[in-house]
Design a protein around this nucleic acid. Structure first.
Lengths: 347, 347
DNA sequence: ATTTTTAATGTAATCGATTGCAGAACATTT
DNA sequence: AAATGTTCTGCAATCGATTACATTAAAAAT
C-alpha cells in the first residue's frame, strides 16, 4: 500500500556524499571505481532496497533488452516446446520476451510485427503463419538493423538466418520406411504446401516414392489444416478410397492419433491394413495404441538454438549475417504403428 | 542497416512549428487539442514513421504497462492453456507480459518474484511451485501496492484474490463416480498435499469414500511428481498390491495415460479390472484407448479470468481487494475408462 | 469597443540513469 | 620537493515523453 518513492541513484549518492556518476558506474561494476567505494555503494543499495529503473536506462542507452517472439500458434506441443527453449535462453541472458501469435492469420502476423516493431525489440524470432505470402512486414526490422531469425516455418529462398530441420530428409525417411515395410499405396496427409515445412516433406515423400519404384498419385495427397477434425475427416476419406491405401505419412502426431482412432473404429487394423507414420514425436505418440512411429522434431532445441544465435548476435559474440541456415537434428523414431514386418520396435 | 535516429515528438513539433506539448497531447487524443492540429500531427506522424518511445513515457508516468506471469511449469497442456488465456487478455488490453517459470522449485520462484519486482511489473499473476512453503517473496508486491492474483496453486487461507476450480468437488465427483460404478478399492494417485489443488482433491476423495461406505486406506494413496515416469512406477506399484485396487483416481491425464498403458501391458483390463478417472481433460484423454474419463479443467478460461480481473483492477474498473475467490466451472467428463457398468459414454 | 470567458497552445521542469570530459587525489619517479 | 603518472570521482548534458502552470488567441458578453 505504502507508495513511497522508489530509491534512485540520487538517493544513494546523497546518502554517501558522492556523485551519481560514481554510483552509476559502481552499480555496473565499472573497474574505474575503487573497490572501497563500490563496496559502500553496493551495501547501501542493498540496505535501501535500490532497484534499477530499466526505463531510465533503456531511454538513455537506446536498447530495450527485449526480444520479440512471433509464433503461428500457442496451442501445440511443438510451439510450447519452442517457447520453453527460447524462454530459457533469453531469460538467462537477461532479455525480456514479448510473445505474439498470429493464429495462422497473415493479417494478425502483420499487426504483431508492427506492434513488436513499435515496442522496439532488440531482435526478433519468428515463424510464419499458414497463409503468409508477403514478407514486407519484416522489412521494417531489416531497415532498422534489427536482427531477425526465422524458425520452422521460414521464407523460401530468403536471405535471412533460419533455424530448421531437414524436412525433405524427414519426408523421405518416413516414406522410405513405409515402403520398406511393404507399403505400395501411401497416402500423405499434410497442410498448406506454400509453407516450406510441408512442401519439403512432400518433396521427400515424392522422391522416396520414385526411388522405391512407386508412382505419385494426386488422390493420395490430402491437404488440410492439421486440426483434430482434419484427422477425422481425412480418415473417413481414406476409408472410402478404393482401393484403400496401405500406408499413411501424416505430418502431425495429433492428426495421426485421431486418424488411427477412426480407422480402428472402422475395423481397419494399424499397421496391418494401414501403416502410419506421424510427425513431431509428441508425448501422445508413445501413449496411444499402437504406439506411433514418427519423426522426432526437437522443439526445445530449435527454440534454444534460435534464441542463442540471436542473443550472441546482440551481444556481439557472433554475427547472424554470416550464418544462413542452421539445421537441427531430427529423424525417424520407429514404433508399432508402421511395423508390418515384425522386427524390433524401439520405444 | 541504416541506423538513423528515430523520429521523436520534437521532430514532429519543429516540422509543424508547434510545441512538443501540443504534439504529445494530440498523440494521446487529448480533447484539448483542436481537431485541425490533431489531424496535421497524426498525418505527419504517419508520414515520418513516428513511434512512441515507451521508455520515455514509462519513465515519466511511472507505469510499466507490463504484467508478470509466474507459472510452475511451462511444459504441460494446462499451463499452456493458461498462458494462452492470459496472453489473449493482456495483449488486447495493451500490456506486455513477462513470463517466468519456477520448474517447481521454491528457490527459482523466489528469484523470479524478485526479478519481476525489479522489473516493476504493474501486476502479477501467479501459481505456486510444488514445494513453496513461505510467501514472503510476495510481500514485496503487497508493500508496494502491486496487485497479485493467484490461480490454480494458491496460498491456503491467504487473503489474496485467487482464481481456482472447486477441487474438493471434483475430487468428490470423480471418486463418487467410481463408487457408483461398483469400485470398492479405489487408489488415489496425486502429488504434494501441501498444494491446495491436491489436498482438496484428496479431501473430496476421502469424503466420497466415507459417504459411499468405504474406508480410506493409506496404502492406496500414492504421492509422486506427476511425471510420466511417475505414472509408470505407480502402475507397477498398483500391480503388486494384493488385493489389487479396482479403481484409480489420478490427478493428471498424462499420468493416467501412462498408468493405463502399463496396466494393459500386464493384461489388466481397464475399466473391467481397474476403472480409471484422470484430471484435466487434456486432448490425450479422448485419443487413448479406452478413452479416459476425466475432470474438465478449463485452463484457457482460468487464464482469461485471472488476467481480466487484474487488468480491470489496473484500469480502475474494478477492485480486486473486494474479490477474494473466483471459481471456474469444472466437472466430470465420463468416457470409457471408468465405465464398468455398460451405459452411455459421452465422447 | 471593452471586458470576460473559453479554447488552444506554449514554457519548462521532471522522470532516473548514462557517459564524455574535466579535475582532484594519490602514488611514483627524479 | 617538484614533476609526472595513475587512479578515482564529479559536472553536466542527454535520452523522449508528460504535465502543471502560464500565456495567447478567439469567441462571447457587456
Amino acid at each position: 500500500m505504502s507508495k513511497e518513492r522508489d530509491v534512485t541513484i540520487y538517493d544513494l549518492a546523497s546518502e554517501l556524499n558522492i556523485s551519481v556518476a560514481t554510483v552509476s558506474r559502481a552499480l555496473k561494476d565499472d573497474p574505474v571505481v575503487s573497490k572501497k567505494t563500490k563496496k559502500r555503494i553496493f551495501e547501501l543499495a542493498e540496505r535501501m532496497g535500490y532497484r534499477t529503473n530499466h526505463f531510465a536506462r533503456n531511454l538513455r542507452t537506446q536498447e530495450t533488452n527485449t526480444i520479440g517472439l512471433m509464433i503461428h500458434e500457442l496451442n501445440s506441443n511443438f510451439s510450447n516446446a519452442v517457447l520453453l527453449g527460447v524462454e530459457k535462453i533469453t531469460a538467462e541472458a537477461g532479455y525480456d520476451l514479448i510473445i505474439t501469435h498470429s493464429s495462422e492469420s497473415y493479417e494478425k502476423e502483420v499487426a504483431n510485427a508492427r506492434n513488436l516493431f513499435n515496442k522496439r525489440v532488440d531482435g526478433l524470432i519468428a515463424s510464419l503463419s499458414f497463409d503468409t505470402r508477403n514478407y514486407d512486414h519484416f522489412k521494417l526490422f531489416a531497415d532498422k538493423g534489427v536482427p531477425v531469425i526465422f524458425f520452422d516455418r521460414v521464407e523460401k529462398d530468403g536471405e535471412n538466418t533460419v533455424v530448421i530441420i531437414d524436412n525433405y530428409k524427414c519426408g523421405y525417411e518416413a516414406t522410405a520406411h513405409l515402403i520398406e515395410q511393404g507399403c505400395k499405396r501411401i497416402a500423405h496427409i499434410t497442410s498448406n504446401l506454400n509453407r516450406n515445412v510441408y512442401s519439403e516433406r512432400c518433396r521427400g515423400y515424392k522422391d522416396a516414392l520414385f526411388d522405391g519404384g512407386l508412382s505419385f498419385e494426386e488422390s493420395l495427397l490430402i491437404i488440410n489444416d492439421l486440426s483434430e477434425e482434419a484427422g477425422i475427416s481425412s480418415a473417413k476419406r481414406v476409408l472410402e478410397m478404393n482401393p484403400m491405401p496401405d500406408g499413411a505419412f501424416i505430418t502431425n502426431d495429433f492428426v495421426a492419433a485421431a486418424f488411427i482412432k477412426i480407422l480402428k473404429e472402422h475395423q481397419v487394423a494399424v499397421p496391418a491394413d494401414i501403416a502410419v507414420v506421424g510427425f513431431n514425436n509428441d508425448a501422445i505418440a508413445h501413449l496411444i495404441e499402437p504406439s506411433l512411429t514418427t519423426i522426432n522434431y526437437p522443439g526445445v532445441e530449435m527454440g534454444e538454438v534460435a534464441a542463442r544465435t540471436l542473443v550472441n548476435h546482440l551481444k556481439g559474440v557472433s554475427n547472424i549475417h554470416q550464418i544462413n541456415t542452421m539445421i537441427i537434428n531430427s529423424g525417424l523414431v520407429i514404433r508399432e504403428s508402421s511395423l508390418k514386418k515384425k522386427s524390433n520396435a524401439k520405444r
